[in-house]
Design a protein around this nucleic acid. Structure first.
Length: 419
RNA sequence: GGAGAGAUGGCCGAGCGGUUUAAGGCGCACGCUUGGAAAGCGUGUAAAGAGGAAACUCUUUCAUGGGUUCGAAUCCCAUUCUCUCCGCCA
């Protein structure tokens, strides 16, 4: 969420930046509501002062007047509340604005490749897709998941299940032991305010799995990413600057409705309603966001370097970034069966956008309260890493070699084959 | 699930309808003291919003939302959360 004071003071510049995000908002309406809101606040405060003075004097002859003032305050308060709600409604739905060095464009075609890494192996046979490989090995079962649950779920079995767990454990170990993140095992359910804090609500309600509970007042949602619950660990807090940066990592299941992606990636486990992801979150001083974004992206790329998987780093354009982001790098891994790169990680700086929503602050050197920067990134998506390992490490006979760094996590086995 | 108690500044904790402008303590910051430290003494220590160039002024906030009253941290109602005991249970 943006600070209304900032919008007020930098109106034209802000308007242009919002337009770059490829959304259409009536910002003049916002400005008028802000003016109206402040006028009403001023009126209200004048009356409140008057009423307070009467109360202090304890003069019975003024009590009737105080009653009348109370009624006036009530009227103005209601009016002000309407203006404030309308104002907040617009603000809550307004996306973050991009940093200056983000390419401007309306969609993903304006994204730019920053760098490419690793060697794409030349295979002397036609590479199979991960779902062909998995089904032949009898270790991926999509039909069974459809039977027990629905489409876009999968059973991972036997050594592929171990491999998935190995990937997750390897990534957690790397980020805790080498990259300085603290491991967290968080709740997988978030309440409405938490979902608001990171920007999933109110705008993206349709993408979320909501739990049907008896208690209708406090809504609960399955987390679509650990970013939600990890970032909100600092909500409503004033942090000590000495505690920054805070770096957190968690491996959790993620739940997404994938509404609006009908017919997209319907085969295989590229796009599922449930998947594991190792998530990185950083809370930093507000002037260190870009520096931290580079660091975080490196931490994610380190996983692919060590797994010896070919990938490239992309910077997203203003039109393709997520709602809360001010700058985003996607990391895309090479998938031989599709003969193209596919997203395996997304690292974003959200600047102070989320900390404004969460009301997180820290005391800076001058003892002033500042909103910290928040960042999140996949380090990496576990399901998609499994896919990438299967496809890139496949042999002609349908067996899959196990990457060196994962072998210690797999009882030192070096190959997965049909039992 | 049953019964009871509670929620007050960063923390502990007083308060029971009108000098609460939230006592007192701890912690923290600065100063005095000291060869240096500790102790001691002194001073200062919440947030959000509005106005203002600034100094500063004003308003709100005692879990949250309503209500009673000229006036609510204090009384009433609802909700949320915490603790104790019992039951159930991984």
């Amino acid at each position: 969420m943006h600070n209304i004071k900032y919008i007020r003071d930098n109106f034209d510049e802000f308007k242009k930046k919002i337009q770059n995000r490829n959304v259409n908002f009536d910002l003049d309406k916002l400005r008028n509501l802000d003016i109206k809101n402040r006028e009403l606040i001023h009126k209200k405060e004048t009356l409140e002062k008057e009423k307070k003075d009467i109360s202090k004097k304890k003069d019975k002859s003024l009590f009737e007047k105080s009653k009348i003032i109370s009624q006036q305050i009530e009227t103005i308060t209601n009016e002000q509340k309407i203006a404030k709600d309308e104002l907040n409604d617009i603000l809550s739905n307004l996306p973050n604005v991009a940093l200056e060095n983000v390419p401007v464009g309306i969609d993903e075609t304006f994204n730019e490749v920053v760098s490419t890494h690793g060697e794409i192996k030349k295979l002397d046979f036609k590479p199979k897709s991960h779902f062909e490989l998995g089904e032949n090995l009898k270790m991926l079962d999509f039909d069974l998941a459809t039977k027990t649950t629905s489409s876009r779920f999968v059973f991972v079995k036997s050594e592929l299940a171990s491999l998935e767990r190995a990937i997750s454990n390897y990534m957690i170990d790397l980020h805790t032991k080498i990259n300085g993140y603290v491991e967290v095992s968080p709740p997988l359910i978030a309440n409405e305010n938490t979902m608001f804090g990171t920007g999933q609500l109110p705008k993206f309600e349709n993408d979320q799995f909501e739990l049907l509970l008896d208690d209708k007042l406090d809504r609960k949602f399955l987390i679509p990413t650990a970013e939600v619950i990890l970032t909100n660990m600092v909500k409503n807090k004033i942090l000590n600057i000495k505690d920054l940066p805070i770096r957190l990592v968690a491996s959790t299941p993620c739940f997404r409705k994938e509404a609006g992606s009908y017919g997209k990636d319907t085969r295989g486990m590229i796009r599922q309603h449930q998947f594991y992801k190792v998530e990185l979150v950083s809370i930093v001083e507000n002037n260190k966001c870009e520096e931290e974004l580079e660091r975080m992206t490196k931490c994610a790329m380190m996983v692919l370097d060590n797994l010896e998987l070919p990938y490239r780093k992309i910077i997203l354009s203003t039109g393709d970034m997520g709602f809360s982001a001010e700058k985003t790098y996607d990391i895309e891994v090479w998938l031989p069966s599709e003969n193209k790169y596919r997203e395996i990680s997304s690292c974003s700086s959200c600047g102070t956008f989320q900390s404004n929503r969460m009301q997180t602050r820290y005391k800076d050197a001058n003892n002033e309260n500042k909103h910290p920067g928040t960042l999140n990134g996949s380090g990496l998506a576990v399901g998609r890493t499994l896919i990438a390992v299967m496809e890139n490490y496949q042999n002609k006979d349908g067996t899959i070699n196990i990457p060196k760094v994962l072998q210690p996590y797999m009882n030192n086995k070096d190959k997965i084959s049909l039992n």
